[in-house]
């Protein structure tokens, strides 16, 4: 064995040793439970009986052929995700640009937009539930505006926007921070150079700033995408999936299948499918966005 190869081997060994603790921890707390749930997804089990019955692909068959509720929930989740990815990123970017410029009280405003992000979504759901019903009632009595008399949580055509509004209000702060950080990394000299070349405000933004903050956009879109697909807590406390099942997301549907109807096997089958969907969408999204990032 040559000296070089021995050195390489040594290095590999050191690398292995250093990663072993983390690897073991992740294996025990994430990977093994995940594999166990994949196994559960092939069984019929109510979560309580001590025996699990193996039923092969029955759960997956039912899921793909005979479960309209799940696919309705899937459709709603996709609509909600699409809506929130667009709304959250546009609003956050716009606000970030405003708050990154020299306006008065920008620090106070930044803090104000961030505050809702600190509060748990469950609590925010309950607060907004109160605002939509009792709060809007008294607004209506004060102002007489019809908009407050709409049934924001009870009308199947409006409830989508109520959910979107609340999740936007909650998550805006986080994305705002990421975008502001991104904007601050844009080198001033590039902006100045473009000014000298005669680029106006809009051109400067689209030609210089936007390409340079592409990494922030990748992070934010990725984050809002996976959060949208996993939406649970805001729905749970705000609408509980209602009225009917109009605002039931996949995550809530899985929760109910497992814990309310006591079909753990079927519930895990659903979550395996959800996992695959998030995985595929995230990989696609990161690939597409990474390609557009530029280096200064």
């Amino acid at each position: 064995m040559t000296q070089l190869r021995r050195k390489q081997l040594n290095r590999g060994l050191v690398f292995l040793l250093f990663t072993l603790p983390a690897f073991a921890a992740i294996l025990v707390s994430v990977e093994i439970p995940f594999l166990m749930s994949v196994v559960s997804s092939f069984t019929k089990w109510n979560g309580l009986d001590k025996a699990q019955t193996f039923i092969g692909l029955e759960n997956y068959k039912e899921l793909f052929l005979d479960d309209q509720d799940m696919w309705k929930a899937f459709g709603f989740t996709l609509r909600l995700t699409l809506g929130s990815v667009i709304a959250v990123n546009l609003c956050a970017l716009l606000l970030a640009v405003i708050l990154d410029s020299d306006i008065k009280g920008k620090n106070v405003l930044r803090a104000a937009f961030y505050v809702p992000n600190i509060i748990s979504l469950i609590i925010i759901g309950y607060i907004w539930r109160f605002i939509f019903s009792a709060g809007f009632d008294s607004f209506y009595q004060k102002t007489g505006w019809e908009i407050f008399m709409l049934s924001w949580l009870g009308d199947v055509n409006i409830v989508y926007f109520s959910v979107l509004l609340v999740s936007l209000w909650h998550s805006l702060g986080f994305y705002l921070v990421v975008y502001i950080a991104g904007l601050q990394t844009v080198p001033r000299d590039l902006i100045e150079a473009s000014m000298i070349d005669g680029a106006n405000r809009t051109k400067r933004f689209f030609r210089i700033t936007l390409p340079l903050i592409m990494p922030s956009i990748t992070v934010c879109v990725f984050h809002s995408l996976s959060n949208g697909l996993k939406a649970f807590d805001v729905i749970f406390s705000l609408t509980n999936g209602g009225p009917g099942n109009t605002t039931t997301t996949i995550a809530l549907d899985i929760y109910r299948t497992a814990f309310v109807i006591n079909r753990f096997g079927y519930g895990t089958a659903k979550s395996v499918v959800l996992f695959l969907m998030i995985l595929i969408l995230s990989i696609l999204q990161v690939r597409v966005f990474k390609r557009r990032e530029v280096e200064v």
Partner: peptide
């Protein structure tokens, strides 16, 4: 059977909301 309360409740809620 366990679980019908919530499931059937949601369906009846859909009826009351004019969904079905």
């Amino acid at each position: 059977p366990t679980g019908t309360e919530q499931q059937l409740g949601a369906i009846l809620q859909g009826y009351c909301a004019g969904l079905t």
